[in-house]
């Protein structure tokens, strides 16, 4: 199977500080991949570079062999924090924005997700709790028929019950060929849906393994991840 995402020798510096160094990463179609790493490891930066909004990096980023930023954005659905909207904006208006500006936005799918997440479209952003807002972000992200979904800590404010429900349903919301790259601290909870794990450590991709490979060594994903960070601490 061909690679969906290809990153070669990517280095990103900001304020004379190396944030990411020599990143090489290939992701295939149809996978669910966890992007793990401690706070400040560069996970969000890497996702923003893939999404085409972080600039001035060295190296190559391509989706299906295409490097152009506009073409990349066309097939990537990034879990935007909705910070570009005023707090007084109603959910209905944000839905209209997505419907009008994204060709691949499926309103019927959004309606299904809206029902699933119990989202009220008459609410304003300021009236929503952190969890509700994150549910809205997830619903908007998965309402696009994208090839690559980038989910940056999507569950941090969602209660445990709803989180479990969403995690178990995510696989149903994407097309078979679509890939999800998800960064999250609830490693144990997302472990069941993962195909691969990518760990960012020391500013680079420390390891990239399939979950099968990890489990063959009688390790859970969480243990595997903890061991990697344990190595550095010793």
């Amino acid at each position: 199977m061909s690679n969906l995402l290809e990153i070669e020798n990517l280095t990103y510096r900001k304020n004379l500080k190396v944030i990411l160094k020599d990143i090489n990463l290939n992701l295939k179609h149809g996978k669910i991949v966890a992007l793990l790493g401690e706070n400040g490891a560069g996970k969000t930066t890497l996702m923003r570079i893939i999404a085409g909004i972080n600039k001035n990096f060295r190296g190559m980023v391509a989706i299906d062999g295409v490097q152009s930023v506009a073409d990349r954005k066309r097939v990537i659905s990034f879990s935007d924090s909705l910070s570009g909207f005023k707090e007084s904006t109603k959910v209905a208006k944000i839905i209209n924005f997505y419907e009008y500006l994204y060709d691949d936005f499926d309103k019927n799918k959004f309606k299904q997700l809206q029902k699933f997440m119990r989202l009220n479209e008459n609410l304003r952003l300021s009236e929503m709790s952190k969890g509700m807002r994150e549910k809205l972000i997830i619903a908007l992200t998965f309402s696009r028929q994208a090839e690559l979904y980038l989910l940056d800590e999507p569950f941090s404010g969602i209660d445990a019950m709803a989180r479990k429900k969403i995690i178990s349903s995510i696989i149903l919301w994407k097309a078979d060929e679509a890939t999800i790259l998800i960064s999250d601290h609830f490693v144990n909870e997302i472990a069941s849906m993962l195909d691969e794990v990518v760990v960012v450590k020391d500013k680079t991709i420390y390891c990239h393994k399939s979950t099968e490979e990890i489990r063959e060594n009688n390790q859970s994903i969480e243990e595997f991840y903890e061991n990697i960070y344990g190595e550095g601490d010793e």
């Binding site: 999404a51 085409g52 909004i53 152009s68 930023v69 506009a70 073409d71 954005k73 066309r74 990034f78 935007d80 924090s81 909705l82 910070s83 570009g84 909207f85 924005f97 500006l101 994204y102």
Partner: peptide, 14 residues
């Protein structure tokens, strides 16, 4: 510098 708008599938120049 609006992230929600900058994510739209359009080149930065346009």
């Amino acid at each position: 510098v609006n992230q929600s708008l900058r994510l739209l599938p359009i080149s930065d120049s346009k």
